[in-house]
Design a protein around this nucleic acid. Structure first.
Length: 583
DNA sequence: GCCGTTTTCGGCCCGACTGTTTTCAGTCG
């Protein structure tokens, strides 16, 4: 049988955690399963394989017991403890705990005392006012359960907003808050500050000369559709797009504590506080309490919070409990790449395929964005976007790019293509035509539903092609829309490292593909990474920030990103150069 | 269930909010 993927292992461990929680296990055991699930989900190699070798325990949070369970899943397809718990609790019971306000303890009482085992039976019981008979429940609880059921059935489990959509309105709102006369300082916190792929809501932390006045004024801003009653130092806003924004206004001497607390992530904060406790310190949003002195240190800046723990400042993008605390202690945090480090873009479209601007317009836009070089990479013939670029049209396009390169000063233009990888691994243009190009991105755009083995062979065939410089948006995922297709990432990264083929971080905020975990693992495996915007219009280069954000969340430095180099240094990195020179 | 420059056993983050309570358990972020 085929080994379970890391995602499947993580799901099984998460389920075990949920079911043990219903079963009333001590919280630390439940947390251990959830930590194990996180470790499996984020591992850069096959966890089943590690378990077979007895090395899964090297992952933080996986000990011998979890390794045994993973091994059982790999060898028999099931985990006995999980099957036993599934038999004990109906699946509807787990679903009930997804309702806000209903946790495992209360759900289990509803099941045992009223035989409620599904959303439907829960609704019936609440409507018939049978729940209020239980001690600890009242009429209010029934009311809230019915409201939660309505909300859940109307829109399903909570949806998240892709980061650029949240920032589009959020940055306007932040700017408006900053411009208010009472505001001294205002910053994003939360997952938006960490530049996560998507957000549940936005958090803004501010200091103000008159907090209550700022809270009242925020309610009246043009971006705000509705709001809670503004308090003395907090208000919840809802934008016209339905995004919730929490504004917290704090004392300046606690700004660092609150910003750190609300920036999270939860996992980072839990690990940070755990670390602090071992040193006699207690971190909260109000300060850092020192057991030895009884003094609570209030921190105007986050730097002071981390300094009190003897750590270097940790950039928000790294705060995911992926080793940043240990690195900060040892002074081994990476010098992360910034937007200003990018020198060129190697994936952009024009009207020759599905872009909206000419070669010249895109060149000038890229130059205006500060780039020194740009590859024009329209879709190959089989793509079917607008005007197909046939072989002859590509030859003509090459001429046009070369001419524009001569005519436009201050930016190097490369004649390229985004070539389709067919299901059999072959490319859309003949080799002799590909050989004429300066740069070739190969991408999968069709037949996503192949199995992992076939898809891996398909992509590796392209990686091994002598004229392919780079693989575009490797996994095909669209954030909150479309899952990544099945692929053996380790094998792909190994092939890319072996051949010198680059892997792209596609900066389109709906893609961010490679994702941060893949990008980190690929770079560690020796793969050269490029950050490309895949721009389809002159404004398209602006999304580079999201590609940079993914690279930062992948711990990457400028040296690990090929297109931080000027063209003279980048050009020899292309694997085709080595192919052509016969090495 | 995991883990160890105080531990192989005994710890394991912090606080707010809510409804149902007469001091707190459960839930959430």
């Amino acid at each position: 049988m085929t080994d379970p993927t890391n995602t499947e292992i993580a799901a099984a461990l998460d389920q075990l955690g949920d079911l043990y929680e219903l079963d009333g296990a001590v919280i630390h055991r439940i947390v251990a399963y959830r930590n194990g699930a996180k470790a499996a989900r984020e591992a850069s190699t096959s966890v089943s394989q590690l378990a077979r070798e007895g090395r899964a325990t090297e992952l933080p949070g996986i000990g011998s017991t979890l390794q045994e369970k993973i091994l059982a899943l790999a060898e028999t397809g099931e985990i006995p403890a999980l099957e036993k718990l599934r038999a004990k609790f109906p699946p509807g019971l787990v679903e009930m705990t997804k309702l806000p306000g209903l946790g495992p303890k209360r759900a289990r009482r509803l099941y045992e005392e009223l035989q409620i085992d599904s959303l439907a039976s829960l609704r019936a019981a609440a409507q018939e006012e049978r729940i209020r008979a239980l001690s600890g429940f009242g009429a209010k609880a029934e009311e809230q359960l019915l409201a939660a059921l309505d909300a859940y059935e109307a829109s399903g489990p909570q949806t998240r907003t892709v980061l650029n959509k949240a920032l589009a309105v959020g940055e306007e709102l932040l700017q408006a808050i900053r411009e208010h006369p009472a505001t001294v300082r205002a910053e994003f916190a939360g997952s938006a500050r960490r530049m996560a792929e998507s957000v549940k809501d936005l958090d803004i932390v501010a200091t103000a000369s008159d907090p209550a006045a700022l809270a009242r004024a925020a309610v009246e801003l043009a971006q705000v559709e509705a709001a809670s009653n503004p308090g003395e130092n907090a208000v919840r806003l809802r934008t016209h797009a339905g995004l919730n924004v929490d504004l917290r206004i704090v004392e300046p001497d606690q700004f660092g504590n609150v910003l750190q607390h609300l920036t999270g992530s939860k996992e980072h904060n839990v690990a940070l506080r755990d670390f602090a406790v071992r040193r006699g310190l207690h971190i909260s949003e109000y300060g850092v309490l020192d057991d030895a002195t009884g003094i609570t240190h209030r921190c105007p800046t986050e730097q002071e919070v981390y300094a009190l723990l003897g750590m270097a400042y940790i950039e928000p993008e790294l705060r995911e409990n992926r080793g940043e605390l240990e690195a900060a202690l040892e002074g081994k945090l990476p010098e992360l790449i910034t937007l200003a480090d990018l020198k060129g873009d190697l994936h952009a479209h024009t009207t020759a395929s599905d872009g909206t601007a000419s070669i010249e317009e895109m060149a000038l836009a890229a130059k205006g964005f500060g780039y020194e070089y740009l590859a024009i990479t329209d879709h190959s013939a089989s793509m079917g976007f607008g005007a197909d670029v046939s072989d002859d049209q590509l030859r003509r396009q090459i001429e046009l790019v070369r001419r524009a390169d001569v005519e436009i000063d201050g930016i190097k233009l490369l004649a390229g293509s985004e070539v389709n990888i067919f299901p059999d691994g072959l490319l859309d243009y003949p080799d002799e035509l590909l050989a004429e190009l300066d740069w070739v991105v190969a991408s999968v755009h069709t037949s996503f539903r192949m199995n992992a083995k076939e898809m891996t062979e398909r992509v590796i065939a392209a990686i091994e092609h002598p004229y392919v410089d780079c693989i575009g948006h490797l996994t095909g995922r669209k954030i909150e829309q479309r899952r990544a297709y099945e692929l053996d990432f380790e094998a792909v990264a190994a092939a890319a490292a072996r051949t010198g083929t680059m892997l792209e971080i596609n900066a389109n905020p709906d893609r961010r593909d490679l994702n941060e975990l893949h990008a980190r693992a690929a770079s560690a495996a020796g793969v050269q990474i490029v950050i490309n915007t895949d721009a389809h219009r002159v404004g398209g280069f602006a999304v580079a920030r999201y590609g940079v954000a993914t690279a930062r969340r992948a711990w990457l430095t400028p040296g690990q990103i090929a297109n931080t180099r000027p063209w003279a240094e980048f050009a020899p990195l292309r694997c085709r150069v080595r192919h052509e020179s016969g090495s």
